[in-house]
Simulated scan of single mutants.
Amino acid sequence: MAGITPDPATDILGIVDVQPTFMPGGELPVQDGDAVVPVINRLLAGPFLHAFATQDWHPAGHSSFASSHPGKQPFETIEMPYGPQTLWPDHGIQGSPSAQLHKNLAQARIELVVRKGFHREIDSYSTFFENDRRTTTGLHGWLQARGMRRLFLAGLATDYCVAWSAEDAVKLGYAVFVIEDACRGIGLPAEGGTTIDAAKRRLTAAGVQFVTSAAFA
């Protein structure tokens, strides 16, 4: 797809978890995670007049941390009351420097910052719902009030927070685009490849469109 011109009345850029905690040198690094920043900045400087951002914002001792479960290691899976939960290294700790939005991210057009994962007993991948699938972040109501209908997603990580956000956005009635070169994924092993491969298959089947930043006028 080429020649997309975002409509400022209906289109918004969603910047997911562009935080040092997910970048090289961070607590839960995504390979080349810092490479999304200049791509997102170009989108913010040009085609998109409106944007929101999210932050993982966990309290110390969050239930999704492997360190909160004696004998467990990062990337193991346990059962939580809301279903399977991947255990992660401690990351995105509230108030820490690595939990802030990346210092080089251009923020002038970011109109809302959603902090998620701050409930100690529930992890939160999606920008719309925490992982119990009942607790909302309030983002949907804000987007509705603004008249937004098309959502373009960028950030980290393709196979987790970006993917869950895209799925929920489709279910909520938005037209959803993932800007591939403005995202990076974790890529854990999964059936048929990696979690990135699985997420792309799932999102494509749901109607999410994958584009690159070159598509924007």
Rank of each mutant, 00 (worst) to 15 (best):
D17L: 04
I110H: 04
D32N: 09
L203E: 11
A66C: 10
D159F: 13
V113W: 10
A157Q: 09
R149K: 15
A9N: 11
A175I: 12
V37P: 07
G117N: 07
P189F: 13
S126F: 07
V37F: 00
R150W: 06
L28T: 04
I179R: 15
A169N: 13
V16G: 02
T212K: 10
P97K: 02
G117M: 01
P74R: 11
G147S: 08
H58D: 02
H91V: 00
T137S: 06
G117K: 08
E180G: 15
A199M: 10
L203H: 09
A154N: 06
F152C: 10
H91N: 00
P24Y: 00
A198K: 13
A166C: 12
K103Y: 08
F65I: 09
K200M: 14
G33Q: 01
D34C: 07
P47T: 01
E79I: 11
R134L: 15
P70C: 05
H50E: 01
P29A: 05
T158Q: 10
G25K: 03
I186W: 12
D159W: 14
A215W: 04
W57M: 04
R109G: 10
T10H: 12
D159C: 13
W164H: 12
A157V: 10
A217H: 01
R134N: 13
Y174V: 14
E111W: 10
G192V: 08
Q100Y: 05
F52S: 05
D11F: 02
L188S: 14
H62C: 07
G155S: 08
A51S: 02
K103W: 03
D168N: 09
V211F: 02
Q19F: 03
L139F: 07
G155W: 09
P24G: 03
L44S: 00
P20W: 05
I186N: 15
A169E: 10
G14W: 02
G185N: 08
L44E: 02
F210M: 04
L49H: 15
M23T: 05
V30P: 03
L143Y: 11
I40L: 03
A108N: 14
A2Y: 12
E79R: 12
V114M: 15
H140N: 12
G33L: 05
P74T: 08
C183P: 06
L28K: 02
G92P: 04
Q107M: 12
I15T: 06
I4V: 14
